[in-house]
C-alpha cells in the first residue's frame, strides 16, 4: 500500500523518476529557468503595469498568504505533516507585531525576528506533545489550537483588544522609502514572497529536505536508519510556524487592524486548502494556491458565496483528479506534451 501511495503522488520535481520505466526527461536549464524567471519578473514588475489600488492590495494579501503557505508546504509537502492551525500561528505573528509596536514601540524590522521566533516557539510548544501521537491526532490538535487561540484573544481584555482587535500604525519611512505607499508595501511583500520561495527551495534541495522526505515516505524506516524522527518533525513544524509568523506580521502592517476572527478555524482551513490546491510539493505551488484562492475570484468579480462554493468543488476535483495540486498537474501536462513533441 505504501508503494501505491508514493507512486501515485510521484511528481516530476522532487526526485528523479523511480525505476526509470517512463522516466521524467531531463529538462534543459532553459526550460527549468523560464517559469521562475517569468514569475520573478511579474512579481517585481507588477507595480509598473499600473494595476490600480484594488488589484495591488489584493496582490499584497495574496503575497501574505503565499508566505504562510510556503511554510505549510515545507511541513506537508516535505515532511508529510498536515496542520490546520496555521492561521493561529499567523495570528501569533500578527498580534506579536501589534503588541510590540504598541507597548515597546518596536518598528516592523525589530519585530520581524520576534514574530518569527515567537510563532516558531508556539509551534514547538504545540508540536512537542502532539506530534508524538501520530498524524491524525496532530491535525485535530492543530484545529483545536485555532479555537483555543481565538478564545484567548477574545478574552484577552485590553492586552489583545478583545473581540474588536488592535490597530497599528503603518511601517513608515525607512532609508527614504515610504512604506505607507501601497506600491512600496507591495514591493516589500513581494520581496518576502521571493525570500520564502528561496528558503523553501533551500530546504527542498538540501540534505535536510531529504531527511524530511524520508520521514514522509516511511517514518519507521527513517527512524531505523538513525533519523531522529521526533526532533525533525517538531523542527519542521517550527520552521513552518516561523513562516506563518512573518506572514502574520506583514499582514498586520498591511491591514493596520486585526481581530480574532482573522485567525480562527476557517482561515486555517482555507490555508490548508490553498496549499493542497496549489501543490504542496512544488516550488511555486504556494504562490499558485494563494493566487487561485485570493486573487482570482476578486478579479473575476465572482459573488463571494458562489466563489466559495466553486472553490470547494474545485478543490475536491483537484484532490481526486490531480492529487499533487494544480502546479504538479501543469508540470505533468508540460512533460507529456514535451514527450509528444520530442517523439515526433
Amino acid at each position: 500500500m505504501d508503494l501505491a501511495k508514493t507512486e501515485s503522488l510521484d511528481l516530476p520535481q522532487a526526485e528523479p523518476a523511480k525505476g526509470g520505466s517512463v522516466g521524467a526527461p531531463r529538462l534543459t536549464w532553459m526550460e527549468r529557468a523560464i517559469v521562475p524567471a517569468g514569475v520573478f519578473l511579474l512579481l517585481i514588475g507588477l507595480p509598473w503595469l499600473h494595476p490600480g489600488y484594488r488589484l495591488l492590495s489584493l496582490a499584497v494579501s495574496t503575497g501574505v498568504n503565499t508566505i504562510a503557505l510556503c511554510g505549510l508546504a515545507i511541513l506537508f509537502g516535505q515532511a508529510g505533516i498536515m496542520s490546520v492551525g496555521h492561521a493561529a500561528l499567523m495570528g501569533v505573528g500578527a498580534y506579536a507585531g501589534a503588541i510590540l509596536a504598541r507597548d515597546l514601540d518596536m518598528s516592523f524590522w525589530a519585530a520581524l525576528p520576534c514574530a518569527a521566533l515567537l510563532a516558531a516557539a508556539v509551534a514547538g510548544l504545540v508540536g512537542l506533545p502532539s506530534l508524538r501521537v501520530g498524524g491524525h491526532h496532530f491535525v485535530i490538535i492543530t484545529f483545536a489550537l485555532c479555537g483555543l487561540f481565538t478564545i484567548v484573544l477574545t478574552n484577552g481584555g485590553a492586552f489583545t483588544g478583545a473581540a474588536t482587535g488592535l490597530d497599528i500604525a503603518p511601517i513608515g519611512t525607512v532609508f527614504g522609502v515610504n512604506f505607507s505607499k501601497l506600491q512600496n508595501l507591495y514591493l516589500l511583500a513581494a520581496a518576502f514572497v521571493l525570500a520564502s520561495i528561496g528558503l523553501m527551495r533551500l530546504v527542498m534541495t538540501s540534505s535536510y529536505g531529504r531527511t524530511l522526505r524520508s520521514i514522509r515516505e516511511n517514518e519507521t524506516l527513517a527512524a531505523a536508519l538513525g533519523v531522529n524522527v521526533g526532533l525533525h518533525k517538531i523542527v519542521a513544524f517550527m520552521i513552518s510556524g516561523a513562516f506563518a509568523g512573518v506572514a502574520g506580521l506583514v499582514q498586520v502592517y498591511f491591514l493596520q487592524h486585526i481581530s480574532p476572527d482573522l485567525y480562527g478555524a476557517f482561515p486555517s482551513v482555507y490555508i490548508a486548502l490553498m496549499v493542497m490546491l496549489g501543490g504542496p510539493r512544488m516550488l511555486l505551488g504556494p504562490l499558485m494556491g494563494a493566487f487561485i484562492v485570493t486573487f482570482l475570484p476578486e478579479v473575476l468579480n465572482l459573488d463571494p458565496i458562489d466563489a466559495r462554493i466553486a472553490y470547494g468543488v474545485g478543490l475536491i476535483l483537484v484532490i481526486l483528479l490531480l492529487p499533487g495540486g494544480v502546479m504538479a498537474g501543469l508540470a505533468h501536462l508540460y512533460l507529456s506534451c514535451r514527450r509528444c513533441v520530442v517523439r515526433s
Binding site: 500500500m1 501505491a4 501511495k5 498536515m82 490546520v84 498524524g135 491524525h136 491535525v139 482551513v269 482555507y270 490548508a272 486548502l273 493542497m276 458565496i305 458562489d306 466559495r308 462554493i309 472553490y311 470547494g312 468543488v313 478543490l315 475536491i316 484532490i319 481526486l320 492529487p323
Partner: peptide, 23 residues
C-alpha cells in the same frame, strides 16, 4: 487508502455545504 486526502476533501466539503446553505 489515503486518509489525508479524504481529510482535505472533507475540508472542501465544509466550505461547499456551508455556503450552499447560506446561498
Amino acid at each position: 487508502d489515503r486518509p489525508m486526502n479524504g481529510f482535505i476533501i472533507s475540508l472542501g466539503l465544509i466550505v461547499v455545504l456551508q455556503h450552499v446553505v447560506i446561498r
